[in-house]
Design a protein around this nucleic acid. Structure first.
Lengths: 206, 206
DNA sequence: ACAGAACACGAGCGGTCGCTCACATTCTGG
DNA sequence: CCAGAATGTGAGCGACCGCTCGTGTTCTGT
């Protein structure tokens, strides 16, 4: 009867030296993952790429899964931070079009944090236990949009706001997903973001 | 110097008995893939699940990758068939809304072929060489939509039809992707398809 | 200065993996 | 009916995997 592997950190590093080791290991994890994919990315390879012994790696990450989870966690929390900041900076006075554009731009900005890593995580990493942080991002986005819609309900024509929020979020997500997977430079194209904004605004307009 | 592994079939089965073996192996591949994911899905497990010896498996599929590739190929060609049939059945006389709705419904129908398998392929299988069949599906969809848009150009307001086609396809894809990954039953909801259609029609309307 | 904690090391264990090959069985054409 | 092609078998090889553990090194508090 095999127990489920640990996913939490084994030991918290206290000295600066150890912090650096952990950073180095995580960075190497991202590199090896990008190069080899999840299953060919052995912990030994990661340790070697980090210039660290395999024993040191297991001192801080109790399993391969925990290692990758930590990387995902860190990346998603950074993306979420970008989204949250942009959400908090939403002016209450603007037009619906301006606000919509800002929310969409925020999502694009979040995906600009590290598109190459994000792509690798999407393409190469099978769904592990702690993919919860990815769901979290989606949930926050949806919540943000729902709040926005009910705030401007009078200026919109939707009866079913929940459904509209879901469809709008999924549509935008379709475009960001494409950018991340196939065309990262598109994440910077204002014209593209304008086009997507236009679609959503028309969808929500009375 | 290791050669790249073969991805094509090793031998074409001629007897009915062998055809059945191949079918059994592919079906078992889908099952094991769904249960264990790509890297934990060993060829030995697949052979055992198929009730076939490991040697027989390697008689028809020269590598693990070729095995999974064949499964993907088959699945995508079925999905593509559904899309193509629906595309061919498009009446030329209808309204833009009706035609749009039919194209979107066709995409949903294609994703209804085997959502569970499709999900597993999306979630578990790292991007292998022969993911080309998936790109093929996307390209065909885009081509279909572009043809549709230029045919009805006079009834639409878009200046940049290529860009509009791309954005529309990506938006719809965002919704189908969500259905496949999180909520397969939504693929059957006419109301949901109506909502998505509404978004696209508004986006394309003058 | 020095004891003990924190950190880093890497050979190697037990196991699984993808895959081969020598052989047995079944089918097909003449 | 039978020769040989097609099909099916499974023990086992070499490689690599995730991970442990006994040991050496560096840091910290006193």
């Amino acid at each position: 009867m095999a127990r489920a592997p640990r996913t939490t950190a084994r030991k918290a590093p206290t000295q600066a030296r150890a912090q650096e080791t952990v950073e180095t290991i995580l960075a190497a994890t991202a590199r090896v993952l990008a190069k080899d994919g999840y299953d060919r990315a052995s912990t030994n390879k990661v340790a070697e790429a980090a210039g660290v012994s395999i024993g040191s790696l297991y001192q801080y990450f109790p399993s391969k899964e925990a290692l990758v989870s930590a990387l995902i966690e860190r990346h998603m929390s950074r993306m979420l931070q970008v989204l949250t900041d942009a959400g908090a900076a939403l002016p209450l006075g603007g037009t619906v079009r301006e606000a919509t554009r800002q929310i969409i731009a925020a999502s694009y900005a979040a995906h600009r944090v590290n598109p190459r890593l994000h792509r690798v995580l999407l393409e190469q990493v099978p769904r592990i236990g702690t993919m919860g942080s990815i769901d979290m991002f989606e949930e926050r986005t949806l919540a943000l949009v729902e709040a926005f819609l009910s705030l401007h309900a009078s200026e919109l024509r939707r009866s079913n706001l929940k459904l509209a929020a879901k469809v709008a979020v999924l549509a935008v997500r379709g475009t960001t997903l494409y950018c991340v997977l196939r065309s990262p430079e598109l994440l910077h194209e204002e014209e593209f973001i304008d086009e997507v904004t236009d679609m959503i605004v028309r969808y929500l307009a009375p």
